[in-house]
């Protein structure tokens, strides 16, 4: 995605070390490019200053679109396009529309959210993202600084102070 960037990163072996180091970097006003972990680390988002994900708002909108599509579609079909009386019920039999309206709402919300998730994360079938280290999906945690924001030397001393290993520079 976009321009290549050069990052300097260090690996931590435990999420508590990672959290401490992120805190230290934040209090030292070092701008963190990204943090990588093999599983979601609890308590990381507020320290890192990540805003809450707005995915659920998107999900709500997709769900509403789905519900309206189904309900208005059935209404149009059964009152305007091809009205049929089933079992003496009115053309516009709202209670009978509820199950399909609900299912379509769930369908639209989940497909929409999942597709949005992959698009905003830049993930998807056939996407190859350069990774920093093969152990980052295994048992290591990394902090990466963009070399534009933090010089390699200060990053290196930061990593040695906070107990990081495998400090390296890589172009993403």
């Amino acid at each position: 995605m976009g321009k290549t960037k050069e990052v300097v990163y260090g690996l931590y072996s435990d999420e508590q070390d990672l959290l401490k180091a992120v805190k230290a970097a934040k209090s030292g006003h070092m701008e963190i490019h990204d943090v990588f972990s093999p599983f979601p680390v609890h308590g990381l988002d507020p320290i890192l200053g990540l805003e809450e994900s707005r995915l659920h708002i998107a999900g709500f909108i997709y769900g509403m679109i789905g519900a309206l599509t189904a309900f208005l579609g059935m209404t149009w079909i059964f009152t305007k396009d091809w009205p049929i009386i089933f079992g003496g019920k009115p053309y516009w039999s709202v209670p009978a529309f509820i199950p399909i309206t609900f299912e379509t709402m769930v369908l639209f919300a989940s497909i929409g959210m999942v597709v949005t998730f992959y698009i905003v994360c830049g993930l998807g079938p056939g996407v190859t993202n350069e990774t920093l280290h093969d152990r980052l999906t295994d048992d290591k945690f990394a902090i990466a600084f963009n070399t534009h924001d933090v010089t390699v030397d200060s990053a290196k001393s930061f990593f040695s102070q906070t107990g990081a290993s495998d400090v390296n520079v890589k172009v993403l």
Binding site: D34, P40, L55, G59
Partner: peptide, 25 residues
């Protein structure tokens, strides 16, 4: 793996997605 990297923001969205999907599932 769709090019997964384990970025903190991705994990955050991944958790949000799981939670909302669980809520509607």
């Amino acid at each position: 793996s769709f090019g997964w990297t384990g970025s903190a923001k991705h994990w955050q969205r991944w958790e949000a997605l799981s939670l909302v999907l669980a809520g509607i599932a």
